[in-house]
Design a protein around this nucleic acid. Sequence first.
DNA 1: CTCAGCCGTATTGTATACAATAAATAGCAT
DNA 2: ATGCTATTTATTGTATACAATACGGCTGAG
Lengths: 233, 233
Amino acid sequence: MPHRKPKSAAGSRGESVYAGLRRAIIEQALMPGDKLTEDVIGERFGVSRTIVRAALARLNAEGLVDVQPNKGATIAQPSLSEAHDIFEARMCIERQVLTRLAQKITDKDIDILEQHIALENKANPSDGPASIRLAGEFHILLAELSGNSVLARYVDEIVSRCSLILALYSRPHSSDCSINEHQLIIDALRARDANRAIKLMDHHLEAVTERALLSSTSEKHRDIRSILDRYAT
Amino acid sequence: MPHRKPKSAAGSRGESVYAGLRRAIIEQALMPGDKLTEDVIGERFGVSRTIVRAALARLNAEGLVDVQPNKGATIAQPSLSEAHDIFEARMCIERQVLTRLAQKITDKDIDILEQHIALENKANPSDGPASIRLAGEFHILLAELSGNSVLARYVDEIVSRCSLILALYSRPHSSDCSINEHQLIIDALRARDANRAIKLMDHHLEAVTERALLSSTSEKHRDIRSILDRYAT
DNA sequence: CTCAGCCGTATTGTATACAATAAATAGCAT
DNA sequence: ATGCTATTTATTGTATACAATACGGCTGAG
């Protein structure tokens, strides 16, 4: 179970606000454009604005949240151009991950991956939100197993931003990653066939990319309070 | 003149603390391991701990500063293993940058690059600190000209972390990037020869990598106050 | 009806106060 | 001296207070 390092980030209260918001964004409970008012979040998580502010700044640095001076924070709305940049970077980095992984993958690694796929299969039919998150975590897991912490961090960041892109430009809940493809990638890795794995991944990501059909972003003022409650702690 | 986006990051006061610290780190005025006490920094920059704290958190997210809960912040000391990860990621990403750039580079882009090299040449003999920074900025400039903002951000982050690595593991001030190599890369790009550019860059980075000869980190308690004064606005 | 300007409200920016934790020091016993 | 515990000091964690700014609605003139 990813995700990333509990590294630093102040007392665990701040961490939980950060993690809660992040999960809400990735599972598309909070949608691009939603206003993130410091008071509201603080009230729901039971912390002061100080903490909330730190969490928002961190999410902003990761590109999940857009903070404008004196105007506050909203869930980021990546432009099509940004989306392109993100996918290009993703290909570049995930290829490297697969190359490394095909060289050094162990049986234990494969076990971990298979186990994760099992999770995905279990969650898939019913639980929409978790399904979105799990599909992304597969990629994060690959990056972590590659052993390069820097690449892993970037994949983590990029995958979560892809969540935003899909929320904006894809029709609702067309599951972004078909599990079959994940299985095929594992098979290629087991055979230590980096090229096949890369080809699969490329196809996999291109399939996602192509779903970029501008859908009008509904602009209604959403009240995020009840949503936050589900993600507080 | 890089560097990166003034994007977000609260009122410009916080930005200047962040930028000042960052520059001090990159120019190796602040060395890995140095303690960054919030009060001290705030006093020197004339802001409250609130601002300093935000800046430190951001630097921490970028891997330049190490923040440990209840213990405070220090300049990061990348391990050899981390150093390896960083260089691997750097190669992977800079290759992509060069590939893109070789396709779409314009005469104006080349002008900008040549201009920057002129700066490097001027600063090189005398001004040590600025020279270090400028050498890195060449790579950041390449990434920005490639037009992919995500890759640009990662290059920015990685190059600055390389500064730390060199400070830790290289003998003092062996200039990390010979300007000649930068010129050769431009030439390759002008000829739209991506492969040659990549080969040059690989060699260039490997040369840097090889200077990883563990030098004992002098552990004396340094007083960073006077250093900070030079970087406060 | 439209639009400009004004005022009240909501929200963010920053400093500060206080609590909690860790580091440093001193005192004591062995 | 050496090691252990108590006490003081330094530093960080968090909440809150207040100032600055942006937002929304209202009024009135055209």
